[in-house]
Amino acid sequence: MATLRDIKRRIASVRSTQQITKAMKMVAAAKLRKAQERLYKARPYAYQIAQVLGHVAARVDRSAHPLLADREPNRVGYVIVTGDRGLCGSFNTNILRHAHEELDSVQAETVGLITVGRKAVQHFDKLDVQVLGRYMNFFNELEFSHAMAIASLIRDKFLDHELDHIYVIYNEFKSAVQQRIVVEQILPIVPELPEKEKHPSEYLFEPSPQAILDPLLDRYLNVRVWRILLESYAAEQGARMTAMEAATENAEEMIHNLILHYNKARQASITKEIIEIVSGAEALKS
């Protein structure tokens, strides 16, 4: 049986763990707020550029640009975005599990992966899969240049015909307590065509739709990857906050039970002592 000292020690240890989870929850909440702000700032640009792209795409043929070319998906690429760090509940495991489901069901000759986030990198490096690119340990100082590096890698793989279709698997940020796993096709680019009646018929392009298309598609791709990274990072912080909150509550419950246990043990030892004294006195009497 656990002695009183043992129980006391356990209470102290759980309590210090609780302090850590509480602090982590607060840090995650602060980071979440920042990440959310950044995401909300990036969204209008991403939305506008998609709209502008739609206007241009409505005027050109889909064969006008190699990034729009829809090829037979013989070689398929997946960009898998997890976090760099753990202790965020099922955030990383859910993404990895979902990625495996995708990989198992895909009908393609070859599959190549681009792993983003330390958890994804470490997970897939242990397995027998083809990893074409690895990006990790950057989410803490996430910059646009990180998105550009990833975008330029997948663009090269696509244009060199190394990959015919490229998908991204990531967590979309819904709210602080809700994430949603999304699988999106990122290449070839499928522009959202504008609604006919809203679109002015007279529309000038300088110098020409083709000339604008090239930098526009580049830009669109970069911004899309950027938004995905921001979504995932905000979702990660949200998941961590929720997980740490639950851990703090669990610790509270554990401490409560341990205290109960402690008191019972204390009571038992007192009772035992009294019995000993009483029976000792009885023995002297007789």
């Binding site: 002015p200 007279e202 529309y203 000038l204 392009f205 300088e206 604008i212």
Partner: peptide, 19 residues
């Protein structure tokens, strides 16, 4: 600053797009 040189825009301009 358009790619083909600076351009000015006033209200009622013809719809157009440039880099």
């Amino acid at each position: 600053p358009g790619v083909d040189g600076y351009f000015g825009v006033l209200a009622g301009h013809t719809p157009f797009m440039t880099a």
